[in-house]
Design a protein around this nucleic acid. Structure first.
Length: 929
DNA sequence: GCTTAGGGTTAG
């Protein structure tokens, strides 16, 4: 006898069995087990630290991406000459420029290096259409055909003198921090200032010349995204030569037609991990000479901006701290020995408290008042050097201190000997000269020899011990408001704490940011609880930014926390939580460190070595905002039905996280198993979790034939028995009705002596037929590998393990109809449930992933599996659906996108843990209408 | 125009 050996689905099983079953649907697999997800409803309920990336973290990004074609320059005054709408520039061969519009509407750009043709040129022209295409229409510049002529050598570098010029509206600006290896470069541009231009170099490769330049995102946007704002751009060939001749440091560029490559110097220069490569005819560069630019945009810190004036001698006098007297208004220099980040006073201002000393060995406490945070000195650590202008010396409690007076300003410098002397300031205009440089160097050198100066207190997470107070330099990954006086910050610094870290989970919707970049690695993420006055600062922090948190307290948990309690914290005794207590004692506070801060070097090294350990894609994950996925214009063929709002992530991101988790992904269906639908239909025992194939008809027919031999008389007290002629001469088919027929169970008929084919024919239009055989004078069911119940076209199976059938004794007290469940119960049969089980091979731009379609498969197709089993029409419908999701023969790029809700979970089999994924809460479009 | 703070651990 051919019997189905089931696959078992229980709490200790594995995925492989199910997949085996998919691959070899008619072969029977025994005693393997599959784990259904332990966490059926909420991935974060397991107590693990789970994160659901929140859209809010990228709000700024989206806002930016939607605003295409921002004016290149803010000056769009009426003096800007423009072409009339629809007009076209043409230039005569004989000399003077002619235009279909008035001369007042002549474009004032146009250059083709090495000779620049600018507004008012007397160069002679003739029509040509093969030159750098520029067209002005409605006041905007387009890349399109234009008839300018007499090009000598036409290169795609344009010097723009019209400050109202705009880029074509279909071009989209990409902020440099958002560039990644996977960036789509067509119809995009970057807008950046030339920080550094290296000398033109000759090259032996495909190009004769090569030139490197460092450009920086042009800071004219509110909420400039965090990340690397400076990037290397490499120009090749004639372009490099022209760039060398045309462009100067300080110029503003608009670059289009570039490609993005990996920067080989990222470790050395600490700039963007990618570089821009510019070669060939697709490249277009608009150059806005520094002289034509207005004042620098003011929305972003100008900490690295070059001073406006630089002279050898200072026009300011600085007083040594030992020479200060009460009542003086002075300019001073000092080395910071204590400081508090600006905090709100009871008055109108923020106050920074600092204590400084200098080579005269005097000490001075300073109170800096300003209602603008940017006017406060940007002090990152003890040892920094400050220059304070116009402070008033006063006596308080017998000691001198100083406070700000009108005209106060501050510069801050890193205190490390030998490091670049770059003043930190928000002021666009400040005086800085060689005297200042010498003063900073002198104070640095002096401070280095001062043992009395307090040590710097920033340490990595790996050095943190329980109960310590310390300063942490870190990157903010995500944050969540806990209540009005507490905010949670999830941070990391790339090092692993020796003590286990407390894990704090919060409602997914409240979390802003993403932990995806950590790849789900344990003990990397510190949970910082920020209290009281620091909540205001925390509210302004953007995930991805770099922070220094001062006087952070490592607090070991005293006892095991109750599951789900205590604000979602999990972890046993000794797990470290980090508290930034209220108040400003010991300089407690938070400071955002700029991307290019020297103070971030160690952190970046740690994060870099982590990244090297992880796949390259992790970098791309971090650099690529999820909005790039949103940009996919196609509609999805599936619809999410879940009630949670999750940031959509890539499949690579899904694979990097630790289960259990829930994700939203958008992917294409590369293939699916099994290929034949009937093989996807399984029988599942809800009791023992066994999963088995639906027996094929031949096997069932064989069971029925075997049962014929046992036919004989039995002594069941049937209420009624009728007989039918069978297809075999002499064989009768008995139809028994039990005594309960008198009570209403009349549609339950026991059929003895029928073949499977006869049984199938008999069941047409019948409510409930149960095939039986006689054994030792008693009536019993057939082997449970055959259906135990026929209802019209539907056939029901029982679990051979869990059913307890002896003889059929149907002396029930039933009244009315019995459904299949009740019939099974009365017969002692544990019914099996029809289920779908498929493996979908998904792919997106980041990679591929196998996901099971199982528990939610019926709702995915909106077809009950038991109905599909009996309905050719429904099976055809499912097959057509699968053909739509994964058109046979088509290439992957042509396949539709599918929005999917995925859940990850772990299964354990033979001591091996495997991560599995299932599709949930997803419905094929139109299936549910 | 004046005031604010005036260092020195929360107690979650």
């Amino acid at each position: 006898m051919k019997a189905s050996m089931p696959i078992f689905l229980s709490s200790c099983g594995g995925l492989t069995a199910a997949l085996c079953c998919l691959r070899t649907p008619t072969r029977l697999i025994g005693h393997n087990r599959i784990v259904p997800p332990r966490c059926e409803t909420a991935a974060h309920s397991s107590g693990q630290n789970t994160l659901f990336p929140c859209r809010a973290a990228f709000r700024g990004v989206r806002a930016h991406r939607s605003s295409t074609a921002a004016p290149l320059c803010s000056d769009t005054s009426a003096k800007t000459a423009r072409l009339q709408k629809g007009s076209r520039t043409s230039l005569s061969a004989g000399g003077g420029r002619t235009s279909s519009g008035a001369s007042a509407h002549t474009p004032v750009i146009i250059t083709s290096a090495p000779v620049t043709y600018a507004h008012g040129t007397t160069e002679s022209w003739r029509p040509s259409s093969d030159i750098f295409p520029v067209k002005s229409r409605g006041g905007e510049w387009y890349l399109g055909a234009v008839s300018l002529s007499r090009p000598r050598r036409i290169m795609p570098i344009c010097v723009v003198t019209d400050t109202g010029t705009q880029v074509p509206t279909h071009f989209q600006r990409v902020p440099i921090p958002h560039l990644s290896l996977s960036s789509a470069c067509s119809d995009t541009f970057v807008k950046a200032k030339v920080l550094q231009k290296f000398p033109l170099a000759s090259s032996e490769g495909d190009y004769d010349y090569i030139l490197k330049t460092v450009i920086q995102e042009y800071e004219d946007q509110q909420n400039l995204p965090s990340g690397h704002t400076s990037i290397n751009a490499i120009l090749f060939g004639p372009l490099a030569k022209d760039f060398s001749q045309t462009v100067a440091e300080g110029d503003l560029l608009v670059l289009a037609g570039f490609t993005v490559g990996r920067s080989p110097t990222v470790k050395k220069d600490g700039l963007h991990p990618c570089n821009l490569e510019l070669a060939g005819g697709d490249v277009h560069i608009y150059v806005y000479p520094a002289s034509t630019l207005g004042p620098s945009p003011s929305t972003v810190s100008t900490r690295t901006r070059a001073p406006v004036t630089e002279a050898a001698k200072s026009k300011y006098a600085y007083v040594a701290l030992k020479d200060l007297k009460a009542g003086m208004v002075v300019n001073i220099y000092g080395v910071v020995t204590f400081f508090k980040q600006p905090f709100r006073t009871k008055g109108t201002d923020y106050c920074s408290t600092l204590k400084i000393t200098d080579h005269s060995d005097a000490k001075l406490c300073c109170s800096i008042f300003s209602e603008k945070l940017e006017n406060h000195p940007q002090i990152y650590e003890i040892g920094d050097i400050v220059r304070l202008h116009r402070v008033k010396i006063q006596l308080f409690n017998g000691t001198l201190n100083c406070i700000t007076t009108l005209g106060f300003s501050a510069l801050t410098f890193d205190g490390t000997v030998g490091s670049p002397i770059v003043p930190r300031t928000s002021s666009s205009s400040f005086h800085f000269c060689d005297d200042d440089r010498r003063m900073v160097e002198r104070l640095r050198a002096w401070a280095t020899g001062q043992l009395a100066l307090p040590p710097r207190s920033a340490i990595p997470l790996s050095s943190v011990r329980p109960r310590m107070y310390f300063d942490l330099t870190c990157q903010l990954l995500a944050k969540a408001v806990i209540d009005t006086c507490c905010t949670l910050l999830k941070v990391w610094d790339g090092t692993i704490c020796a003590d286990p870290l407390l894990s704090v989970s919060v409602e997914p919707v409240t979390l802003e940011g993403s932990l995806a970049v950590t790849g789900g690695r344990h003990n990397l993420v510190a949970n910082v609880l920020v209290y009281d006055n620091h909540v205001e600062v925390a509210r302004r922090l953007k995930p991805g930014s770099y922070l220094r948190i001062y006087n952070l307290h490592a607090v070991p948990q005293s006892a095991e926390m109750p599951p789900g309690g205590g604000g979602g914290g999990t972890g046993g005794a000794g797990h470290l939580a980090f508290h930034l207590h209220g108040g400003t004692a010991y300089g407690r506070g938070i400071r955002v460190l700029p991307e290019d801060s020297l103070d971030l070097q160690e952190l970046k090294r740690s994060l870099e070595s982590l990244e090297n350990d992880m796949s390259d894609s992790s970098l791309i994950e971090w650099c690529t905002p999820p909005e790039s996925l949103d940009a996919v214009p196609e509609d999805s063929l599936t619809v999410l039905k879940c009630d949670h709002t999750l940031e959509r992530v890539t499949l690579a991101c899904v694979k990097k996280t630790t289960p259990p988790r829930v994700f939203h992904v958008r992917a294409r269906l590369r293939s699916y198993q099994p290929e034949r639908l009937y093989q996807a239909l399984k029988l599942h025992c809800p009791k023992c979790k066994a999963l088995q194939d639906v027996p094929d008809e031949e096997a069932i027919a064989s069971l029925f034939r075997e049962a014929l031999s046992g036919t004989g008389c039995c002594s069941e007290p049937w209420a009624f028995t009728g007989y039918l002629d069978s297809s075999d001469p002499g064989r009768k088919i008995s139809l028994h009705m039990c005594r309960s027929v008198e009570k209403g169970a009349k549609e339950l008929v026991f059929v003895e002596g029928a073949t499977f084919e006869e049984m199938s024919r008999l069941s047409v239009g019948q409510k409930s037929l149960v095939p039986v055989r006689s054994s030792d004078g008693r009536m019993t069911l057939l082997d449970l590998s055959a259906p135990f119940l026929f209802q019209g076209p539907k056939q029901y199976y029982g679990c051979t393990r869990c059913s307890q059938v002896n003889c059929v004794e149907l002396d029930t007290q039933e009244k009315g109809e019995m459904d299949e469940r009740r019939i099974a119960e009365v017969l002692g049969v544990q019914p099996l449930r029809y289920v779908f089980l498929m493996k979908l091979d998904l792919q997106d731009n980041s990679g591929c992933l196998d996901a099971l379609l199982w528990n939610d498969a019926e709702s995915f197709f909106c077809v009950p599996a038991s109905d599909a089993e009996a309905s050719q029409e429904l099976q055809d419908w499912i097959q057509q659906t699968l053909d739509k999701l994964c058109p046979p023969g088509g290439c992957l790029e042509e396949r539709p996108w599918l929005d999917l809700c995925l859940r990850s979970y772990t299964v354990e089999e033979s001591g091996q843990r495997t991560v599995c994924y299932q599709i949930f809460s997803t419905v094929v479009s139109g299936a549910d209408v």
